[in-house]
Nucleic acid binder design. Sequence first.
RNA 1: GCGGACGUGGCGGAAUGGUAGACGCAAGGGACUUAAAAUCCCUUGGGAGAUUUCCCGUGAGGGUUCGAGUCCCUCCGUCCGCACCA
Length: 878
Amino acid sequence: MTADSSKNERYNARQAEARWQKVWSERDIFATKNDDPRPKYYVLEMFPYPSGRIHMGHVRNYTMGDVVARFKRAMGNAVLHPMGWDAFGMPAENAAIDRKVHPKSWTYDNIAAMKKQLQSMGLSLDWAREVATCDPAYYKHQQKMFLDFLKAGLVERKQSKVNWDPVDQTVLANEQVIDGRGWRSGALVEQRELTQWFFKISHYSEDLLKALDTLERWPEKVRLMQKNWIGRSEGLLLRFMLDPATTPNKENELEIFTTRPDTLFGAKFMALSPDHPLSQAAAKKNPKLAEFIEQCHRMGTAQAEIETAEKLGFDTGMRAIHPFDRNWTLPVYVANFILMDYGTGAIFGCPAHDQRDLDFVNKYGLGNTPVVCPPGQDPKTFVITDVAYDGDGTMINSRFLDGMTIEQAKEEVAKRLETETRGNRPVAQRQVNYRLRDWGISRQRYWGCPIPIIHCEKCGVVPVPENDLPVTLPEDVTFDKPGNPLDHHPTWKSVRCPKCAGPARRETDTMDTFVDSSWYFARFTDPWIKTAPTDRKTVDEWLPVDQYIGGIEHAILHLLYSRFFTRAMRKCGLVGMDEPFSGLFTQGMVVHETYRAKNGEWIEPANIKIEGIGDARRAMVAATGEPVEIGSIEKMSKSKKNTVDPDDIIAAYGADTARWFMLSDSPPDRDVIWTEEGVQGAWRFVQRLWRLVGEIANIQAPAVRPQNLGESAIKVRKAAHRALAHVSEDIDKLRFNRCIAHIYEFANALGDAIGNIEKAPDDGLSWSLREAGDILVQLFHPMMPHLAEECWAALGHKTLVASEGWPKVEPQLLIEDTITLPVQINGKKRAEVTVNRNATNKEIEAAVLALDAVKKALGGQSPKKVIVVPQRIVNVVV
RNA sequence: GCGGACGUGGCGGAAUGGUAGACGCAAGGGACUUAAAAUCCCUUGGGAGAUUUCCCGUGAGGGUUCGAGUCCCUCCGUCCGCACCA
């Protein structure tokens, strides 16, 4: 190939990408050894659900992870960068119902298809560690851990009210109910009473909350969301005596939880949850109350209903005695807004300082007494009508609390009541409550990990013996009727009891698929070990994951469950740490314009033609010219048909172009708008780099560095090393958009320098350009690995750039001999001054005062002040 | 209702309290070409001016500072999370 022909030849991404992928795979350069002595770095992207095709969100996510992996590898780390499949879940069952394919074959076909797609992206993954959660070799260990957790007291079976998804016909965890709807089906969730298996995540409430502070490399937003979700509140558990004359049964007290014991003298009523035992007991003797409770149960849990629901109550006739005044009794209501599963399911109501309580008393005419007076208010004139006051202030109308602050009053009430006893127990005790509930994991589905439990009529709940694990899913199941196919299976569930050998029944519920994803990161450290979920030594070497990357949608669900699971695993001796992910990054979504035809139908971008710009911008169906409306920019979704298929993009432009575009423009934590123009820009740059490298490769340059380098040579070296310093820092901080800007800048500088090479005698410029060419290729290698290999080879290297070390910055090249400082007069830029790098502030000041612009501004006067900020700016105050 | 984030050209966005608009996209002009594509060069926040240059400008209004897109206060707007949690 002659120099001229190589100049004009376009880079054939399709051909080159396949070729380099083959080379990487044949030389197995991304395999990670577990006994590698170099410092470890574990980079992980949230593994995908094998839906069948990757989408642009995957491309963005995995590109970011791959940039980090390739960079850290070049930096000399032993990098673990694995991939697997979150392979259990509903869509496989839906496919079975709709298309009569078995969930297993559907899933594995999808895995094969998506693996091929991921491989076409050129990701530097260690595929030898691939795991699929639906593989018995994987879920066997999950079943074992379930039994370990059970032994450790972290699993519990209890009857409880659960979220029931009527469409998916299964139970959902609280975290999986979004706005009152199932996170997957979108159906309005109903309440049902069922016996379920629970992981006792609430056992770790305090620890999960406290440890958030240690997760310094997590986004503040995610930490805050978890903090709010755990919802810690401090208060008082307080026992009210009931007036025996008013109670239908022999109950004599009512325990409530409050965070506002200071407002005790503003109490106007007590309220019980409809599900409270006292309500239930009273209802047995009072049909009207029973009816009221029924009515409460009928009320939906949907967001809209709760928002508009009126506060309703039913007076039970019972009276509670005020803890500080035996002669003061309060009516006991059953109220629809009291939740049974928070606190004790009962409250005292202080209407003046709680909006709900105020709404309630205003409906039932119970009145209110303000007990906290806002600062600056006259207590005598301070009244509450429709708006409760929940701010700070001074205690009033509260006997011995009067004049105290809220905090003092809380303390005083607690002190008095916790030392008072009734029936050998203190009347009150301080308590911390959490919003976080235990994690219900039972799902009435087929395609999930079977819960390894046997129910025996005689022995009760019996764990499956370890030797019998895994409990595998039967393959001969039918999906012709609603409900759980495991339950319908003719034989699978009938077994012998491991204890008494009598007839018994298998648990037919399977585990929530979030269990599968709660420990896969640990399995990757040694996916080959058969006897245990992890090899203790290996897992402790690799974990925690140094950089975890995924969507913000898992801020609570997956990320909280995994934190719990790691703690539970530690308790069972399986890992040596509490936190699974020391660094977390949540990337933004890939969004795209939407297009809608006159008939309301959404049209795919691939079928759209755009004409005009700005206000004149019009969209039409490419084939027919039919005009369509350009809609809002939204997350790529099938329903709005605004998706772009990664396969199409890779076929048209190559993976490197797609990767490059994904990283450019938007900061990685924000949404990126996919545009055809942007992709074409990325593609043009691929070609430009190829031409640029081709030109550099054609330069005749000395093999060794010339003794003396001229000005233009040094300029090139400075540009290279400045880019190197910036890109290194920016990758390290995951600021990929800035990396890309710096690479553009560097490429522009090189282009200019090449233009000069024939104009002047070679003063080392040719050598510097060859050096800079190498650096350029190494810098863009993490983002565009195929093009980088092709360029690396074109520059005459026999190695793979993917296996090269990261170039070293020469710090002296980052320093200029002279610096140009902006000169401000009264804070506005008026001039510039160029001084020696080592000039003292005095010298700089003198140079500045000698400037014409400054002299003019001063008009012969001396300045009030001259501020010299070294290396930055000079400000003259006139 | 509670909590949080954000607001910068035509667009995506740069900017440790220190030259606002890097870099990219789009647009306009030019070169090359029979022509187009591709490529290369120039221009591109608004306004005034022939030039040097000047004025205005980071949602609005105040404040702190020699200096504010950045810090503080008030307001407006957008987005996100939670939501009858006592």
